[in-house]
Amino acid sequence: MGQPLRKAEPETRSYRERIRELVEADRVEGARRLLAEALERGDHGEDLSRWERVLAKTKGRRNPEVALDFDRTPEITWIREKSDPYKGQWVALLGDQLLAHSASLDEVMAVLEANKPPRRPMVHYID
């Protein structure tokens, strides 16, 4: 004789609890589906707005106003080849140009503040 089928237990845990459990188990798609079910039902009396926010998929946006980044190879090359005389000092570099150097970072930053370079310089401690 076969075993009698067990009746499914009614779910007693809150949506918040169940969503959190799925998230903690890295089951993100499951969490999204459960959240969608909760939002569709709408009668659970729970604030799920935080989960809505963190589980939402968002579209990307091109932003031409963000300045292009640039290759720091010239700065790295300068540090490798020319930094020996500056041991124990901070240097500010833009490309292969040394903009400022001092044992004091504040002094280097003050020079940069007074003569603002066209792009963000690399500030590096030579040890």
Binding site: T58, P64, V66, D69, F70
Partner: peptide
């Protein structure tokens, strides 16, 4: 905590991409 932050993928060529990520 899990929080949404604006991430910008910086471009050396072309145009940067902004996305919100958790």
């Amino acid at each position: 905590i899990l929080a949404k932050l604006l991430v910008t993928f910086l471009a050396d060529d072309g145009i940067a991409l902004e996305k919100h990520g958790t």
